[in-house]
Design a protein around this nucleic acid. Structure first.
Lengths: 340, 340
DNA sequence: TTGAAAGCGCTAACAG
DNA sequence: CTGTTAGCGCTTTCAA
C-alpha cells in the first residue's frame, strides 16, 4: 500500500504539503499541487481512512440503523441517504437490526458505539430507554426518520394529517361505510405510526359524523400478505364496508388482491386508498397519499452533514410534504352512484 | 471521549494490559481482566476503530457493493451478509450504486478504494475492465454473489440448470406451447443472468423437441410491473402459450396479474413458473425454483471472513442449492387435462 | 508557500 | 502476567 510518504518522496515535497495538496487546501502553489496530484494518481495513492480519522477525529462515515432493508420504505430511505452521503464523500455504515430484533443488543452495544461514525440516522425505530441513552451518550448528531420518538429529533410525514386526508378523500366521494386496515404495532418498530394512522382515521370519521365499527378495523402486518389476509377476513363477512383505508400501500394492494379473489370489484363495489405511493401503486392503479422516502433519506443526511459542518442543529419538528394521488382504486360508493 | 489511557489510569494498569484484557487475549490474570472490564464499562469506554485500525491494519469492515437495495434479491442477500458480519463484530459498509449507475464512478474511485474495508462483496454486477482492475488492485479478498463475472470469484445458483429445471417442470406437466418472460440485460447488472436463464429455457425446449417461437419470448424488466406488461403483450395475441417460464418470481407475479386482467385462468388456462421463491410467491400461489439469497449472503460473508482469518481462498465455483416448490400456478395444459 | 515535528489512540514486540 | 516503547499514516500547529 502506498502511503503519503511514498507520494511525498516521489514528488520531492514534504508529507504536509502532499496532505494539503490532496485535500485542496489553499496554501499550496498551483505547480506543487499539480505535481503532487499527478504522482499520487500515478502511484494509485488513496488516503487511509483509519489514519486520517485518527488524526482528525472524523470518520467520514454515517451510521444508518434500519429495522429491515427488504421493506420498500426502509430500502428507499436508505437509498436517499446513501446517495446524499456518497455525493459528499461520506460512507454509509449499515446496521440492519432484523425484524425479529435479535441483533439489537449486539448492534447497540458492540457496533454503533464503536466510534466509527460521525452521526447516526435511525429509521422508524422504537428505542428502549437504555438504547436511547446510549445513542445520546455518543454525543454526535442523531435523527430518526419516519416516526416520532421521545427525546430524539425526528423527520417524517404528519401521520395524523395523512390518515385524515386519506379517509376524507373516501368521505368526500360519498362513502359512509369505511373500514380501516390498521398496522400492527411491530416489535421494535415505532408503534406510534400505526396508532396515529388509525387515530387519524377515527378523527376523520368522527368529524364527518360517521360511525366507526370495530369489526371494520382489522389489524395486520404492514405488507401485502398481511393486508390481503386482513381484507379477506373483513370482506368475507356478511356486511362489509364500501371503502377501505389501508395504513400502507402494501396493505392496500393486499386488499385489492383479496377483493379480486372474492369477486368484489374495485372501485365499483369497493374503494381502496393507501399511504406511500409504493413502486407498485401505479401497477395496481392504487389511489394513495404519496410520500417521498428517498427525499426523506436525503434530507436526513443533509441535516446531519450540516450539523457536522458546524451549523446549529434544527430543533423544530420537520414534516415532509405528502400529496394525494388519485388513481383507479377509488370511486363513489355504489349507492351514491345510483343516486346521481 | 474516554480513551484507553483513561481506563488504564483508572484501573491502575498499563494501556497494554487494558488492550489485552479488553480483547480477551490469554496473557492476563483473571483478576486484572475483571477489574479492567469493570472500569472500562463504568467509564463507557469504546475502542476507537480508527486507532485500532491504524495499529492493526484491519478495519473490521466489509464493503458491500449493491446495484439497488430496494430490489428484493439484493436486499435479502445484504441482510444475510450483515447478519453474519454482525455476528463476528464486523461492520457493513454499503455502496449503493443506484440502478441508473450515475454513482459508479464516484463509488469506485473515491469510496471503495479508501482503505476502509478488509474485503469486498459485490452483488450481481457487471464490471468494466477498469473497475475490475481497481478492485483487484485493492489486494484484498473479493467475491461476487449472484452472477458469474470474468476474473472474479463468484457464488450463486447454476443459472442454466435452474432455468432448465423450471422449463422441464412445465414440459413434464404436458405443456408444449411454453413461453418465456426473459429478463432485460439491465445497465450495469450482470448480463449473463438473463442470458443464461433464457438459454436454459431454449436448451430444455430443444431437448424435448419443442419449438421455441420468437413471439413467445418477451423481454422485460425483472420486476412485477415489467412482467405484467410483457405478459399483457404476449397473452393478448391471437395464439398464446399454455405455460410461461418467467426469469424471476416478480416477473411471474406480474404475469399472473396480467392473466387475471385478461380473464385467463391460472393454472387452468395458463401455467406460470418463476425463479426465486420471493416473499410474495406464497401469497400468489406461485410455483417456483427457490433459491436462498439470505443464505448466499451469509455464505459470501463467511468465505471472506475465513480468508481474512488466513485460510486459503476457495477457488472452486460455488453453486448454491435450489429446489422446485410446487404451488398452485402450474398444472397440466387444458388439452392434456381433457385427454386424461 | 513549505517543512519539521508532535501527536491522534491503539497494538505489538520486547523486556522483565 | 505486566509494563515500556515504538510505531501505524495522517493532520496540524509552529517556524521558516
Amino acid at each position: 500500500m502506498t502511503s503519503i510518504d511514498d507520494v511525498a518522496r516521489a514528488s520531492g515535497v514534504s508529507t504536509a504539503t502532499v496532505s494539503r495538496a490532496l485535500r485542496g487546501l489553499p496554501n499550496v502553489s498551483a505547480a506543487t499541487r499539480e505535481a503532487v496530484l499527478a504522482t499520487a494518481d500515478a502511484l494509485g495513492y488513496v488516503v487511509s481512512s483509519s489514519a486520517s480519522g485518527l488524526a482528525t477525529g472524523r470518520t467520514l462515515a454515517m451510521g444508518v440503523v434500519v429495522p429491515n432493508v427488504s421493506r420498500w420504505f426502509y430500502a428507499t430511505v436508505l437509498e436517499g441517504i446513501d446517495a446524499e452521503l456518497r455525493r459528499v464523500g461520506y460512507d454509509t455504515i449499515l446496521f440492519n437490526l432484523g425484524l425479529k430484533g435479535e441483533d439489537r443488543e449486539r448492534v447497540f452495544h458492540r457496533s454503533i458505539l464503536r466510534k466509527r461514525t460521525d452521526a447516526v440516522i435511525a429509521l422508524c425505530l422504537d428505542f428502549t430507554p437504555s438504547e436511547r441513552e446510549q445513542l445520546a451518550s455518543l454525543g454526535h448528531p442523531t435523527i430518526v426518520v419516519g416516526g416520532p420518538v421521545n427525546g430524539l429529533r425526528h423527520l417524517g410525514i404528519d401521520e395524523l394529517a395523512v390518515a385524515r386526508a386519506a379517509t376524507d378523500h373516501l368521505i368526500g366521494l360519498g362513502h359512509r361505510a369505511i373500514g380501516h386496515l390498521a398496522g400492527h404495532p411491530e416489535h421494535g418498530l415505532n408503534k406510534r405510526v400505526p396508532r396515529r394512522r388509525r387515530r387519524g382515521y377515527e378523527l376523520a370519521m368522527a368529524a364527518a359524523g360517521l360511525p366507526v365499527r370495530p369489526e371494520w378495523i382489522e389489524p395486520s402486518d404492514f405488507d401485502i400478505a398481511g393486508g390481503r389476509e386482513a381484507a379477506l377476513r373483513m370482506l368475507g363477512r356478511s356486511s362489509r364496508p364500501t371503502a377501505l383505508f389501508a395504513a400502507s400501500d402494501e396493505m392496500a394492494i393486499g386488499a385489492i388482491l383479496a377483493a379480486r379473489e372474492l369477486g368484489i370489484e374495485v372501485p365499483g363495489e369497493l374503494s381502496v386508498v393507501g399511504i406511500d405511493n409504493h413502486a407498485l401503486a401505479e401497477t395496481f392503479g392504487l389511489t394513495t397519499i404519496a410520500q417521498d422516502p428517498f427525499g426523506q433519506g436525503r434530507l436526513a443526511a443533509e441535516l446531519m452533514l450540516a450539523e457536522l459542518a458546524g451549523e446549529p442543529p434544527r430543533t423544530d419538528l420537520i414534516d415532509v410534504p405528502t400529496a394525494l394521488i388519485e388513481r383507479a382504486s377509488t370511486a363513489p360508493p355504489p349507492a351514491a352512484t345510483s343516486r346521481l
